[in-house]
Each structure stands twice: as C-alpha cells, then as structure tokens.
C-alpha cells in the first residue's frame, strides 16, 4: 500500500483513502464538434502507457474529495510528486535527482 501526499490536505496519507483516476493532462476539448473522428478517437482512447514517469490523476475520495495530479514512476511504483488539478506538469529533474 502506497502513501500519497494530497496537495490540498497537505498530508501524506494511506492509499486506501484515494482512488486512481487515469492519465493526467488530457483536457476535454472546448468544442468536441470541431474535432475530426481521428482526433476524437485519440482523445477518448489513446494513452501514453508510460514505462517510467507517468502523469496521472488521483482523487482523495475518502478525504477532501479533490482530484489532483501526480507523477509516479511505473517501474518503481514511487510517487515523484503530487500537485493540484489545473497546474502544469512540474519540472521533475530536482525530484528525480533526490530519488537517485
């Protein structure tokens, strides 16, 4: 069981309080009707399936209820960082160095 830092509660808490919510930074197009079938397909179904750093969403479902973003290494299952929804992908070089 992992420990996850909720960027809203500012606490590191057991995974049991959280729910996974898929890949992060996939914004719903502002006007889906303007998308081609291929573009819409990519939005719906195409995911990076990263080996290594993966940007993903979690929800502190049994806590503050907020969706937030995380960078997790899918090989080591280690969280590199978590950050609030709507924030840009953070620069991970410092975090990664510290983890080495």
């Amino acid at each position: 069981m992992l420990l996850i830092h909720c960027p809203y509660c500012e606490e590191t808490l057991p995974e049991a309080e959280f729910a996974y919510a898929g890949e992060a930074h996939i914004a719903r197009p502002a006007d889906p009707s303007t998308l081609s079938d291929e573009e819409w397909r990519d939005f719906l179904f195409i995911r990076t399936n990263a080996r290594g750093t993966h940007f993903e969403r979690w929800r502190h479902i049994h806590g503050c209820g907020r969706f937030f973003n995380a960078a997790r290494d899918t090989v080591s299952d280690r969280f590199l960082t978590t950050y609030k929804a709507g924030k840009a992908r953070p620069d991970l070089s410092a975090v990664k160095e510290a983890a080495e």
Binding site: A21, A27, R28, R57, R59, R66, F67, A85, G86
Partner: peptide
C-alpha cells in the same frame, strides 16, 4: 465531480 473540478471549475 470529475467534470466539475477538472473541466468546468
């Protein structure tokens, strides 16, 4: 909640 918090805040 997902749509509200992340798409239409």
């Amino acid at each position: 909640e997902d749509y509200l918090q992340t798409e239409w805040p």
